[in-house]
């Protein structure tokens, strides 16, 4: 058991943090959107990134699976490391990286295919087409995503027929099927109703046992409920980073305090 307060002992894998950024700057063309961000995320924790919209937290999250690569004029300085390795090095395989680093998006975005095919997709693109292997992986992933009881009888149904909350859990299942060790979540519950949100939150809590999770959220209470560590972004800078409890009860920076107490946002 971890101690409730005080310095939580960071679990570090082989001497390095699971996710790490060193003096990262990001530009869109001439516009600087992230400024000198340095941050370390230990293994099997939930880290929440909070801040007002447009503060760069989503951009920062997308650095870890290189989703920003598709943005025109995107440019990055500094290092992004996963498990101690620079993921932007020349010979890095983006596809391999994304099998390790899964992502769940803001709006549920299932493929316009059956539930089964949604979850099997990540394996199929790796060339796995054996039905038994796929069946097992699909069942296991959907169970992990706490969706199995609701969909087990109609896996052939089109995923778009599910409710928003179910769709989002399906997207999580789809991500789990590839067996990543890290899951990035970009405001995963912002488009959902309170009940679905609660389900997603408890799911995140469960998944922490086996995965390192980074969640972007604009909902501070959510950050407080689910995360071990919290980073506060403001105008492209990481203003403060620390244990969630400390950030919420005893922020060191005035801006963090103002944001937490709802003076802007």
């Amino acid at each position: 058991m971890l101690k409730e307060s005080g310095e939580m002992k960071d679990r570090i894998k082989g001497g390095s943090y699971m996710l790490e950024s060193k003096n990262v700057n990001v530009f869109y063309g001439d516009k600087k959107v992230l400024q000198d961000v340095t941050l370390q995320v230990p293994e099997n924790t939930v880290t929440a990134l909070i801040g007002p919209s447009g503060c760069g937290k989503s951009t920062y999250l997308r650095l870890f699976n290189r989703m920003n690569d598709y943005i025109e004029n995107f440019r990055k300085e500094g290092d992004i490391l996963i498990d101690g390795k620079d993921i932007y090095r020349k010979d890095a395989e983006i596809e391999e990286l994304r099998k390790t680093v899964g992502m769940v998006f803001q709006k549920p975005n299932p493929f316009p295919k059956s539930i089964y095919e949604n979850v099997a997709y990540g394996l199929r693109i790796q060339g796995i087409n054996n039905k038994d292997v796929l069946d097992e992986a699909v069942e296991k992933s959907i169970k992990k995503a706490a969706l199995w009881d609701e969909v087990k009888d109609d896996l052939k149904k089109n995923a778009l027929a599910l409710s928003g909350g179910q769709q989002q859990r399906l997207c999580i299942a789809r991500t789990l099927a590839v067996e990543p060790s890290i899951i990035l979540m970009d405001e995963p519950a912002s488009a959902l109703d309170p009940i679905s949100t609660a389900k997603i939150e408890s799911l995140i809590y469960e998944l922490k046992q086996n995965y390192t999770i980074v969640v972007v959220t604009h909902n501070m209470h959510q950050a407080g409920r689910i995360s071990d560590k919290t980073g506060f972004f403001y105008l492209g800078e990481l203003v403060e980073f620390g244990d969630t409890k400390q950030i919420f009860t005893n922020p060191k920076n005035k801006k963090t305090e103002n944001y937490i107490s709802g003076r802007f946002g």
């Binding site: 994304r98 493929f111 789809r174």
Partner: peptide, 11 residues
């Protein structure tokens, strides 16, 4: 979003 989801799964 569909393309993003596919890329994010390593496609």
């Amino acid at each position: 979003t569909i393309k993003e989801a596919s890329f994010a799964l390593g496609a």
